[in-house]
């Protein structure tokens, strides 16, 4: 890539188009940052072997999590939706296992 000193920046529509979201794609180099909403700073700390180490500096009320973890919790919650009342059976097994 030729270094023009300029950062690439373009907008792409995301699947969440109906919610008026856009995906911003831009290029950053090591030690460069982006600022979200004036209060969240995302800094590129290290780039190596196809991995990027990112530092996020955000206010305390901002939840930050890896997407795959969020997905996993979503899946588990979908599986946890209660379909039939089995509390009595569950109690029986609970007590059986306790003894």
């Amino acid at each position: 890539m030729t270094d023009t000193g300029l950062n690439t920046l373009y907008l792409v529509k995301t699947p969440k188009e109906e919610e008026n979201n856009y995906m911003l794609i831009l290029t950053r180099k090591k030690d460069e940052s982006i600022i979200l909403d004036g209060k969240i700073e995302i800094k590129i700390i290290e780039i190596e072997d196809g991995k990027v180490k990112i530092g996020i500096d955000a206010p305390k009320d901002i939840d930050i999590m890896r997407k795959e973890l969020y997905k996993k919790i979503e899946e588990e919650n979908l599986a946890a939706v209660n379909h039939t009342s089995k509390l009595e059976d569950m109690k029986k097994i609970f007590n059986k296992n306790k003894d």
Binding site: Y70, I73, E74, E75, N77, L78, N82, L87, E88, M90, K91, F94, N95
Partner: peptide
């Protein structure tokens, strides 16, 4: 809400009165 049910904002705890039964809703 909760993940996968982000639109559900209000819940109520229905606690099992049976002390021997640890499961609630």
């Amino acid at each position: 809400g909760i993940p996968a049910f982000e639109e559900e904002k209000q819940f109520v705890l229905i606690l099992n009165e049976d002390k021997e039964n640890p499961f609630h809703y």
